[in-house]
């Protein structure tokens, strides 16, 4: 039976952390997040980064979707991925350069916080392309507890759980340079700007704000051949979405 899941419009820019990945050399084009009240206050739906890179094992590719950063050591255990009743995570892959997904991984979670079970189905042809999707009901499936390496080393392997956030930013200094950066939770634009710095701290003094913080990571590793149509076309595009069952109204 197909279950309809609606994708919120607002998710488009949030999850358009798109990569143009070449099998040999990955290249990140852009990354941004927390662009709405909803995603800022519901970090499990807030995709911070999508990474694609050659895996440690030759001939394999790792895809990583990060959400919910920053998590402190204590909060890590109480935070969880979205339950399947709330929505699912998808990693979409364009094989021919038309920016339309040709393959999709659907990642869903069940169970209580701290004991969730992850299920990843894919890579499969999507039931439909675009913003409104349905659950895949057939195809390759890997399932098991979070915080565990799952799957077949020769096929698809999956890990879902807290992992150190690999992003680097000297956020404290950023706020001193641009103190009137406007969050979505209130009209901070009314604050007068009083910059106390004009540039980032130099190497050796700059401090990574995200050091030690975890994000919730979904990591999928597959053979390169699963994502490249043929040896003559080894380029593919990757992006990720969060699809909600009941999207909030008026979120743009």
């Amino acid at each position: 039976m197909k279950t309809w899941i609606t994708r919120r419009d607002l998710i488009v820019p949030v999850v358009a952390a798109a990569l143009v990945a070449v099998v040999a050399v990955g290249k990140v084009k852009a990354s941004d997040h927390q662009q709405t009240v909803f995603t800022e206050t519901n970090p499990r739906y807030d995709i911070t980064d999508v990474f694609a890179f050659p895996a440690a094992t030759p001939g394999r590719i790792a895809l990583v979707l990060m959400t919910s950063s920053p998590l402190t050591p204590a909060l890590t255990n109480s935070h969880r991925f979205a339950d399947i009743s709330e929505g699912i995570y998808q990693i979409k892959v364009d094989l021919d350069g038309d920016a339309v997904e040709d393959l999709v991984f659907q990642v869903s979670f069940t169970g209580p916080a701290g004991a969730q079970v992850v299920s990843v189905r894919g890579p499969s042809r999507p039931n439909e392309t675009g913003v409104v999707n349905t659950f895949l009901t057939s195809g390759n499936l890997v399932t098991g507890p979070v915080n565990t390496n799952l799957g077949d080393p020769a096929g698809m392997q999956v890990f879902a759980g807290p992992r150190n956030d690999p992003f680097f930013i000297d956020l404290e200094q950023f706020f001193r340079i641009i103190p009137d950066r406007k969050p979505v939770t209130g009209p901070l634009s009314q604050l007068p700007p009083h910059p106390t710095a004009s540039s980032f701290r130099p190497v050796g003094q700059a401090v990574d704000f995200l050091r030690g913080y975890n994000g919730l990571a979904i990591v999928i590793e597959v053979p390169r051949t699963a994502l490249t149509s043929n040896d003559n076309h080894r380029r593919f595009g990757v992006w990720a979405t969060v699809n909600l069952v009941n999207p909030p109204a008026n979120q743009h």
Partner: peptide
């Protein structure tokens, strides 16, 4: 307690960190 130790360490690492 782990969280407190975590932020004590972070604050010591960045003497200008308001966060």
């Amino acid at each position: 307690e782990k969280d407190i130790a975590f932020f004590v360490k972070r604050a010591a690492e960045d003497t200008e960190s308001a966060g």
